[in-house]
Design a protein around this nucleic acid. Structure first.
Length: 946
RNA sequence: GGGCGGUUAGCUCAGCUGGUUAGAGCGCCACGUUGACAUCGUGGAGGUCACUGGUUCGAGUCCAGUAUCGCCCACCA
């Protein structure tokens, strides 16, 4: 039992409940896999590991909610269930967080040196990890914490190195000098996916390059008065230009191809080439070719065998290739160059231009395409099987439209740059032998604390050693470039090179964080070591994550799963949308537009937040989270609480045995109705859950609990319970039964309040074996309870109550006052007689007289409501207003006539009769006769008024 | 330049294979402390389902196009 005090408070207090209930679950070990010896198929989810950068945001709350619902549902279905939580080291992001902290102390990571800095990050990790897992707990996440994994734990480390080695051995990892995305602020390479695109108002500069018409005796070019005018958005890169390109079909420049032009200021002579990539319509139809600083130009350069001139340093300042502009930052250089060229008359035109630039997804600095030696994964061979499994349906996407998005990206996949010039992450498992390649390894030595721009000692390994520098000093204070050296790729840290040398230097770089993420579904289960856990749980069942990381993560898991395990990593990919705030803005801490999930939990309770998150949109769609909706969720928890409080208080000291079978045919109609309805609900919820329509399932339970169970069954049960002379059986067993079913159905969505109530409820129940709701069996809907007749009959009673209430409200009858009323029963006498006590109380219509024909009801000064099959007549002496009643009836007649006409037209349409299914035609006919008889009744009543 | 998603009540959203008079929450109006709940109850108002055309006996739902907002992908400088 979770509750020390059995008495229930007047309203539900999540703060007094959640923590205690969570501890109860966790201490009882319910989050650990159960039923593993059963024949049921296991169900497992690997949680997308949040970054250790900081606290959870509302998106994580959504992830937790969806996954916890699936996990709790399957746990209750009796499936062996594993939800495996984890945390991501998040290379750049975490390094940035810690560097910002250092900056506040006036330090950079270089002041600390690599080892000390890493220790500093570990301190941060140790601090934030418990905060994160505590936040999951606050949201009710029933994850198996004993399995919690960090991406830099030993297991994942081994998996990463093993995977790297395997790829290398298979020729799928290579090292090469390519044009990569470089973030000058983070000072690292980025993959294409880590670059975001932003629009910027900029200019298109037209620059004249004079054509060369000859050379003097010393070979110096002589320029003519003719120009080639190029159009560029990046004038500062002109210092790296190696050609001017035009379209071969462009007649304007037909005579120019093959000639040369002279770069102003730089005075470099470069050729004019023809290339299909040039759009004749754009700008002047002339492109300046800068292969080292633009991907398109890079390719043109390759096609025409042009040199690549790298004119930029890693901090985005221009280098010595830029001549007089060396040392200037790229944007300063742009201004100076434009000014110079303008003064020299080389810029005839500047147009305003909307430019799309790539920015670092982490720090939003404009990235620079730069030539650089990096490590790459060759993707094509890995992608094909990952395309096949999705095409063959071995992995399905929910919603399925993401399947096409996935396939489209996979079919156009490009090689993946995996090396990062960071200190935080999985160090690349590659070593260089200083004994064998000491002349090819360039070492830069820098004392810790020395400013970055301070002169450093640079030389080959052998040179520095010859100068007396020790291996230890190099390892401690050096960085090295070893592009010429032979890589030694190894899973374990090697002691010696293959030739026996003991002086090894590990590659400086770390791996892209997503490299380890791609292995997550199996690295967390112990791969590469063979073990029972991995065999049992892999492939996992569902991968649930945001659609924004399909490529970054989902695609890579599929590829790596197939590559390393030979089997898909999961069967279903369920993708949720982005949570926005109520103004539709993306939530962001830095913009202050975020909603803190913990704050919501604090104010409204975790159940309220969960209910809101799951019902605020459908799968794959973004949502706007509004506090008002969370409030509505809180209200619902309170409603359920109070309904339960009523049922439990009604029990008093009595123990109640839950009914084991459907009610007998002679049982009260409302009992047969509500149990029929609740099993129907369970069937429908089951159906929705199977389709991953979790929000719809939750809404259905909400509607049932509030609008059927609380509004009607409980209100009817009150009447029955209070009537001491009643010959009816006690409503308690059915009340308890239906409440208990609702708690089960609702538990995956609102775990805390349901468990709390359930524990209080079962103390007074006989016949419940389960020890906790979290592990009780989930209802799937028992067929034997269905009772269509009872459902119709109660629907009629409800209609009568509503009709009388409506008349009372319209006629402004005092709410508390009992009034006499008549119901002309027609064929439903039995139902109405049985329901009389309920109608009397719920409509405050007493005495209520059930009569057989309209003649037996009063005709003077009455208000009449004509329903399907029955007519309610309310005498209104004193309150009666002839004109008002006439108007009321006339309006209803007009509406009914219109409806009758619509249906009649439909039924007399020959096409409809010929083509519509029988079932539909029959329904329409029934509707027509119902409307017609209602119309007759209404007309008769109107006639009575005179 | 391609692709995707949204456009339904004042607001935020459901409406899943086309079939009653299109729903919910919040908000709004009127009334209400009848011992589960004012975090509530009762009654009510409120929508030509963005637009145009088409398919169909029948369209919020399917098709084509348009508008508009948003997102993703992409080497027009």
């Amino acid at each position: 039992m979770t509750q020390p005090d059995a008495a229930m408070a007047k309203s539900y207090d999540p703060r007094a409940t959640e923590d205690r209930v969570y501890r109860f679950w966790e201490q009882r070990g319910y989050f650990k896999p159960r039923n593993r010896d059963s024949a049921r198929a296991p169900f497992s989810i690997v949680m997308p590991p949040p970054n250790v950068t900081g606290e959870l945001h509302i998106g994580h709350a959504l992830t937790d909610t969806v996954e916890d619902i699936l996990i709790r549902w399957h746990r209750m279905l009796g499936d062996p269930t594993l939800w495996l939580p984890g945390i991501d080291h998040a290379g750049i992001a975490t390094q940035n967080v810690v560097e910002k902290q250092l900056a506040k102390e006036g330090l950079t990571r270089h002041d600390l040196g690599r080892d000390v800095f890493e220790e500093r990050v570990w301190q941060w990790v140790r601090k934030i990890r418990p905060v994160i897992s505590n936040q999951h707990r606050r949201l009710g996440a029933s994850a198996d914490w004993s399995h919690e994994t960090f991406t830099l734990d030993e297991g994942p480390q081994l998996a990463v190195r093993t995977n790297f080695k395997k790829l290398w051995d298979d020729g799928l990892i290579y090292r090469g000098e390519r044009l990569i995305n470089w973030c000058p602020r983070c000072r690292t390479a980025l993959s294409d996916l880590e670059v975001e695109h932003e629009e910027q108002n900029s200019s298109l500069w037209h620059i004249r390059y004079p054509l060369v018409d000859g050379h003097d005796a010393e070979g110096r070019p002589h320029v003519s008065d003719q120009y080639m005018t190029v159009a560029t958005t990046r004038p500062e890169t002109f210092v790296g230009d190696v050609a001017v390109a035009v379209n071969p079909k462009d007649e304007r420049y037909a005579g120019k191809v093959g000639r040369t032009v002279l770069l102003p200021v730089i005075q470099r002579e470069i050729p004019v080439v023809a290339d299909d990539a040039i759009e004749m319509e754009f700008g002047t139809g002339t492109l300046k070719v800068t292969p080292a600083h633009d991907p398109v130009d890079f390719e043109i350069g390759q096609r025409h065998n042009l040199p690549r001139i790298n004119a930029m340093n890693l901090d985005a300042t221009l280098n010595e290739e830029a001549g007089p502009y060396a040392g200037l930052d790229r944007y300063e250089a742009r201004a100076v160059i434009v000014r110079d060229l303008e003064e020299l008359g080389y810029i005839p035109k500047i147009e305003p231009y909307l430019l799309t630039v790539g920015v670092c997804s982490r720090c939003h600095t404009v990235v620079e395409p730069l030539m650089s030696w990096q490590w790459f994964v060759s993707m094509q061979k890995l992608a094909q099987p990952a395309i096949d499994v999705v095409r063959e349906g071995k992995i399905t996407f929910v919603p399925d439209r993401f399947e096409r998005i996935y396939l489209n990206w996979m079919e156009n996949i490009r090689d993946w740059c995996i090396s990062r010039q960071l200190w935080w992450g999985h160090r690349i498992p590659v070593w260089y032998s200083a004994d064998d390649d000491g002349d090819k390894i360039i070492v830069t030595l820098r004392e810790p604390g020395a400013p970055l721009d301070a002169p450093a000692r640079v030389g080959t390994y052998n040179e520095l050693r010859a100068q007396g520098v020790t291996q230890e000093e190099i390892l401690a204070h050096g960085t090295w470039s070893a592009v010429e050296a032979t890589p030694i790729v190894s899973i374990a840290t090697p002691d010696r090179s293959p030739t026996g040398g003991g002086h090894l230097l590990q590659d400086n770089d770390v791996l892209d964080t997503w490299f380890s993420s791609g292995l997550w579904p199996f690295s967390t289960l112990g791969w590469p070591n063979a073990n029972a856990e991995l065999d049992y749980w892999y492939p996992t069942s569902v991968m649930e994550t945001g659609y924004d990381i399909i490529f970054l993560w989902v695609a890579r898991m599929i590829m790596m799963g197939l590559y390393d395990m030979g089997e898909v990593p999961f069967r279903t990919v369920y993708l949720h949308g982005t949570v926005r705030n109520e103004h539709g803005q993306r939530m962001s801490k830095s913009l202050g537009t975020g909603v803190d999930p913990l704050e919501m939990v604090e104010t409204y309770g975790a159940d309220a937040l969960r209910y809101t998150l799951i019902t605020s949109s459908g799968p794959g769609n973004d949502m706007r989270l509004s506090e008002q909706r969370v409030e509505a969720g809180r209200n619902f928890a309170n409603k359920l609480w109070n309904a339960a409080r009523f049922v439990i208080s009604l029990m008093g000291d009595e123990r109640v045995r839950l009914p084991e079978d459907p009610p007998a045919a002679g049982a009260p109609v409302e009992d047969r109705w509500i149990v029929s309805r609740v099993e129907g609900l369970a069937r429908s919820v089951d159906e929705q859950m199977r389709k991953f329509e979790l929000g719809e399932a939750a809404r259905q339970v909400y509607d049932f609990v509030w609008s059927e169970f609380a509004d009607w069954y409980i209100e009817i049960a009150k009447v029955r319970a209070r009537d001491e002379r009643s010959t009816q059986p006690s409503p308690l067993p059915v009340l308890a039964h239906v409440l208990e079913r609702c708690l089960r159905l609702l538990h995956p969505f609102m775990p805390f309040v349901t468990e709390e109530i359930w524990q209080a409820l079962v103390q007074k129940l006989d016949g419940v074996e389960d020890e906790a709701l979290i592990v009780a069996e989930y209802p799937r809907g028992e067929r034997g309870y269905h009772d269509a007749r009872a459902e119709d009959e109660v629907a009629l009673l409800i209609d009568v109550v509503r009709a009388i209430r409506n008349i009372r409200a319209e006629k402004k009858v005092e709410p508390a006052k009992f009034i006499e009323a008549f119901v002309v029963a027609d064929g439903a006498t039995e139902t109405l007689v049985a329901g009389t006590p309920y109608i009397e109380t719920l409509a405050r219509a007493r005495p209520l007289r059930i009569v057989r024909s309209i003649e037996e009801a009063p005709r003077e000064q009455v208000a009449t409501a004509v329903l399907e099959g029955v007519t309610a007549v309310v005498p209104l002496a004193g309150l009666f207003d002839l004109e008002a009643e006439r108007a009321r009836l006339e309006k209803q007649i007009i509406d009914a006539e219109a409806e009758a006409r619509r249906i009649d037209e439909k039924l007399s349409n020959e096409q409809f009769r010929a083509k519509a299914p029988e079932r539909i035609i029959a329904t329409e006919q029934e509707r027509l006769s119902a409307v017609q008889s209602r119309l007759e009744g209404l007309r008769a009543s109107l006639a009575e008024l005179g």
